[in-house]
């Protein structure tokens, strides 16, 4: 067993580059997903019924599709419509779009739970449109929903593992290469598990930072 881990150690460059790629994928998707959610959430809350309904259909649709299947559709399915993305682009698009739907729904939930008056005060003081959302509505949402958003970030990290099926060289892909090259499944996969766990700890540290900011304002 010690020998198995020694083999994994000898392949550490491969694992670390996998970890690096997983981190890049997760960070980019998390940021892009949040930015998209900042657009989707006001649409979900819009008084224009057709807009709210359209976005609602998209959000509910995404939440009911298994991520693996969605990644298959983006990578293997879109070329039938003439949209051909390489594995990195496909992976990023799939992770981002899929989780943007969840993030939008999280922010909508937090919005509904906010007191109405501070937002109304924003309107009364001359805020409207994107500025009202960005300056008055959004900051309390992010503070209130911080832990739930952190949870979703962890979900993004874990879903990125599925992208091994489109040959994206992320952490799970690296671990499975090591195991197939040397036949050390337990050592390779358990090492990957601990590395994922490390990423989650970093996210949780970020969440507790946000929580400290929030509790000063509650």
């Amino acid at each position: 067993m010690i020998r198995d881990f020694a083999i994994v150690w000898s392949e550490r460059d491969l694992l670390l580059s996998g970890l690096g790629n997983t981190t890049i994928l997760s960070v980019l998707s998390a940021i892009a997903g949040l930015v998209i959610a900042f657009v989707l959430t006001p649409a979900l809350m819009s008084k224009r019924r057709w807009l709210a309904l359209t976005v609602r259909v998209f959000v509910d649709g995404m939440r009911c599709v298994p991520f693996l299947l969605f990644a298959y559709i983006v990578y293997y399915g879109l070329p039938s419509f003439g949209i051909r993305l390489d594995n990195w682009s496909s992976g990023l698009v799939a992770l981002t779009v899929y989780h943007a739907a969840y993030l939008a729904e999280i922010l909508r939930g937090a919005w509904v739970a906010q007191p109405r008056e501070p937002i109304e005060a924003g309107v009364a003081f001359g805020f409207s449109g994107p500025r009202l959302f960005r300056r008055i509505i959004l900051p309390p949402l992010l503070l209130a929903a911080g832990p739930v958003i952190g949870n979703q970030m962890i979900q993004i990290v874990k879903d990125s593992a599925f992208l091994t099926i489109i040959a994206l060289p992320e952490l799970t892909h690296a671990a499975s290469s090591i195991q197939s090259r040397h036949y050390v499944p337990f050592a390779a996969f358990i090492t990957a598990v601990f590395l994922y766990w490390g990423l989650c700890l970093v996210i949780e540290a970020g969440v507790s930072g946000i929580d400290r900011l929030a509790s000063a304002r509650r």
Binding site: P115, E117, P118, E120, A121, G122, V123, A124, F125, G126, F127, S128, G129, I136, P139, P140, L143, R217, R218
Partner: peptide
Amino acid sequence: SDRELSRVRTRIGMVFQHFALWPH
């Protein structure tokens, strides 16, 4: 439009029953 209304509203100060301060 919302934008035109906003411009007029800046000339009217409002104080709310439940304060409505911005918590962040």
